[in-house]
Amino acid sequence: MNVLEINGVTKRFGNLVAVRDVSLNVAKGELCAIIGPNGAGKTTFFNLISGFFPPTSGTIIFDGNDITRLATHERVTRGMARTFQITEIFPELTVFENVRIAVEVADGYRLRPWINRTEAARVHKHVETTLKLVALDIKADRLVGELAHGDQRAAEIAMALALRPHLLLLDEPTAGMGDQETYQITQLIRRLHRDSQYSIVLIEHDMRVVFHLADRVCVLDQGRMLAQGTPQQIAANEAVQAAYLGSAA
């Protein structure tokens, strides 16, 4: 059973074709990494999946339903959560409050002008479980804006998890991190994948992270899907090596 089926998706911006006829299936519980040189169209591809803008052509099927034309928040409501290359959080709120908003929206309370005790207690509990999962429970009362970069990333992932997604989209989860933080986030993603069976698609530059985590690697180059396969297959693929060496030269 596939969580996500992307069929021949193309995105044009004027004369520029950012994503060209890309297809990708993500099976339930799979972790799929998207790599590629700078400007390969990875983030555009992510934006198409999460509904930042509609594709010029092609279809996107999520959980068996066509979501190609759905707005962002409708995709989120159907179980798709994402994080960003540059962390998107609520800096002036505490870690707890950040995640609470996500939980309340996920529980369908977003339009409610009141919340009763039982509901509030359930929300509270769910926030705490989520924070424990990313090891931020001890920093629940800190302002997110004052946390270290790695913890902010973890908080953003916690907000995504609080939505109980069927699919998690992570855009460069280790961007701008030192070795220690990269290691921690990698371990976190590994736990989410192995222990909690999340289906995950991530963009990543750090090859150590990719090879450590991914079931499958997809290589984008100049908007095209250059190759797909296990990490070992991709490492041995000559076209991929050429693309990377070519862009490095």
Binding site: S50, T72, H73, V76, T77, A81, R82, F84, E88, I89, F90, P91, E92, L93, E97, R100, I101, A102, E104, V105, A106, R110, M159, L163
Partner: peptide, 18 residues
């Protein structure tokens, strides 16, 4: 709280399903 969320970060709010 969703109002405050929108004030703090509109993009994040959208991607929480608001």
């Amino acid at each position: 709280r969703t109002m405050i969320a929108i004030r703090e970060n509109e993009r994040r709010s959208r991607f929480l399903g608001i």
